[in-house]
Design a protein around this nucleic acid. Structure first.
Lengths: 245, 245
DNA sequence: ACCTGAACACCGTTCAAGT
DNA sequence: ACCTGAACACCGTTCAAGT
């Protein structure tokens, strides 16, 4: 046995950094994350982080990616011919339900999209402060691409043409992220006195209350999701009737 | 006449500040806006800004509000019983068109929503860098509330129940802002080498290119908007048949 | 009322130095 | 290879002082 090098274990790792950053974001918000504060929480000195990430932004991207990775994708299973170690079974496979008047597409793409949308929104509402990071830019982080891939694969397997399958992944993402950003990406202001109701003839005073905002957000999400899926079902039917183009 | 006080005109005004801030955001991005840089662009010294705004964030909110104010609302006109000085006539009242299979709701709420969505998206794409500020939080800035009020007024006038009218305003906002944030709120990364195509079995190499991204974003926006409006038309029809609840 | 310079308490990131 | 202290070039905001 030659001489054992490797004196003591490294204090930091990418994983430990991402975990601490996520906790800090959750507890105190995006603005609270400075390299010095984060390093202090890890019992280490500021610049040490740069041995593991090239910029602070890369750390936040990794936190956002970890949240994306927690989104359930099991509802899309059954068609994938690709790799993966299949770790994503569990989660609440609860009330999918679907509408019913679409006639039951092959393998129920509609129900899968519905369940996925809710799983996605729930993951975001657990970590509202990271949503702005997650929303910006196209989904180019690993977990974001994995989401896009799963949706694309399931939609094409259900009979959607590839171009439409790509669009469905994108438009669902718009709606879900848009709802998350607008709903809980920012603390409510609630300084009602600043808004004069007489400026907005149709809106009642009630519209300005934070509590009411929560109701509206949830109702709007469900109404919008249903409309989106109903509208897509219409396109899907039209596709079955005249399969040209 | 008593002694004239008021020696010389103030150098700054809220308007001048918002204009300069908007130009800086457009030209160099959100991060380029520091109080010192902005003040310098106005030929003034850093802390002067605090005579007109309480925080830097308030300045950015005002910039975002100015962009919202540019969204065309003329397509919602004709039902408002409230105040307002009616300044919003002009703009491109171009290709509304509508789908046609909804049966022509009273005053064409569908066509109005379609035209509005495009006008909104266009306004955002003219100033992509401010979109993250505009998207976050519920629409509590004056222009944001004016938008919500116009949509609500037009939808109730068209026969939608108030609760649904509120939801429609919110869900349309989710989709439009979500699409804007995801599409052009952030420069494309485009370091293709960082992504291994074999990790995403269904996605081709082409999906990772920025140029293709633009196509996808536009197609997804139009497909999603159509689906949303088709789905809402379905709900509207159901409402006409059994006007209970 | 509005603008200034100086100052406070921070930032992200680089770099030579240590082990 | 990984961590450190010191340093650089910035921040947002406050405040006493000027006019």
């Amino acid at each position: 046995m030659w001489r054992m090098a490797r004196p003591r274990k490294p204090l930091l790792s990418r994983n430990r950094i991402v975990e601490a950053a996520g906790a800090l974001v959750d507890a105190e918000g995006l603005d609270a994350v400075s390299t010095r504060r984060l390093a202090a929480a890890l019992g280490v000195s500021g610049p040490s982080l740069y041995n593991h990430f090239r910029t602070k932004d890369e750390i936040l991207e990794a936190v956002a990616d970890a949240v994306s990775a927690r989104v359930d994708l099991s509802m899309f299973e059954g068609e994938g011919k690709g790799g993966g170690e299949g770790g994503n079974e569990g989660a609440d496979a609860g009330g999918a339900g679907s509408g019913g008047d679409a006639g039951g597409g092959e393998r129920d793409w509609r129900g899968a999209l519905h369940a996925w949308a809710h799983s996605y929104r729930d993951a975001l509402s657990d970590h509202p402060n990271i949503v702005p990071v997650l929303a910006r830019g196209p989904g180019r982080r690993p977990a974001g691409l994995r989401l896009a891939d799963a949706v694309f694969g399931a939609m094409t397997a259900a009979g959607w043409p590839p171009a439409q399958a790509t669009r469905i992944g994108a438009l669902m993402r718009y709606f879900i992220l848009g709802s998350a950003v607008a709903s809980f990406a920012r603390g409510f202001v609630d300084d009602e006195a600043a808004y004069d109701p007489s400026d907005y003839p149709h809106l009642g005073q009630a519209h300005l209350l934070a509590e009411r905002q929560r109701e509206v957000d949830e109702g709007a999400f469900e109404t919008g999701l249903t409309a989106l899926l109903d509208g897509l079902a219409l396109q899907y039917e039209a596709l079955r009737e005249k399969p040209s183009t």
